[in-house]
Design a protein around this nucleic acid. Sequence first.
DNA 1: ACCTGAACACCGTTCAAGT
DNA 2: ACCTGAACACCGTTCAAGT
Lengths: 200, 200
Amino acid sequence: MRADARKNRDHLLAIARSTVLEQGAQASLRDIARRAEVGLGTLYRHFPTREALLEALLRADFDTLACRADELAQAGDPARSLVTWLHEAIAVTHGFSGAIALMVAAIADEGSALHASCVTLRAAGTRLLRRAQEDGVARRDIDGNDLFALISALAWLADQPPLVPRADHLFDVIADAILPGRPGTPHAGGAPGGSAVQPR
Amino acid sequence: MRADARKNRDHLLAIARSTVLEQGAQASLRDIARRAEVGLGTLYRHFPTREALLEALLRADFDTLACRADELAQAGDPARSLVTWLHEAIAVTHGFSGAIALMVAAIADEGSALHASCVTLRAAGTRLLRRAQEDGVARRDIDGNDLFALISALAWLADQPPLVPRADHLFDVIADAILPGRPGTPHAGGAPGGSAVQPR
DNA sequence: ACCTGAACACCGTTCAAGT
DNA sequence: ACCTGAACACCGTTCAAGT
């Protein structure tokens, strides 16, 4: 790759990152090229589709996430490992609103530039989930696809401005659903007729 | 309202319904007007924003949903009532992919044509949730906003084609999270080291 | 090799002109 | 009252022409 091309590509990525963080994954590609002071054709040459651009923006984080899954799979508590990883997985697309819908679409579309990343993500999650299931701490009736869907839903939720204030709390609620055997806050309403205290 | 205007409006709504079901809530308004064989300005006159059009398409279902909440609040089992209503709430936007994001945005935007419907929906859910909480069967650390967010997330999920096959199952998982005290399938992994049977 | 921007076929939105 | 469609300012995508 020629030096000038490399420079264009890098600059384009930096501008794309800030623009997407500002306007979401549907930001105008024309506008990104304009801000980068580069011809529109140059953007298309480096990133033939919007998915390709997003993939370039997120690739490093995806790779990190896959490594983290392996690290965590060796570390201690399987429940804690899974929850930690879920947090990190959701954080990856945070701020790139609209990107998660493209990722979900990509998992069923082998032609998408995001396909491989999605498959890797799902595989990493599946490993940690299975470990937690074998440990008897995660529900047994969910699989890697379910986990991928739950991650997607939580990531989507965390990128809807009006829902942001509840996102962390709902993460906990859903984590409890996945890991009912985990030592956590006794959230429940208690026995019918009981008088549980009001948390929060 | 003049008879010809009424006719245009009704026809526009019928065409819009089928177009949105086919292409999602971001369907081209120009295309809807074209299919309805009506001037573009006529569409804008009747529905000044995309939200106004969606609202007109969904209003009847929203009203029904609010009534259903009252019915169910009087009927028997609070847990069962809530779950039934949640199912119906999610079904309302089913097929209108992309609509749920507009609704979420609308709940924080009093100027949106969808605002009132969202508020009504949230209020109806809150009533059923509180009843279940008082009955000791729903977790006490969630409120109407959380329920609205969970409905949104499940509705979003159910409109992502690759996730559709898991949507029903994930509904159950999240329903279990909301209603841990409910007599349901013993999904859990059992005690650590235990040998729970494999459901499903 | 790589870059550029005009060209094409679309959009959403507005509004003067018509009936 | 209501309808129409041209006009405007945008898109995404392609591709001939340049360096």
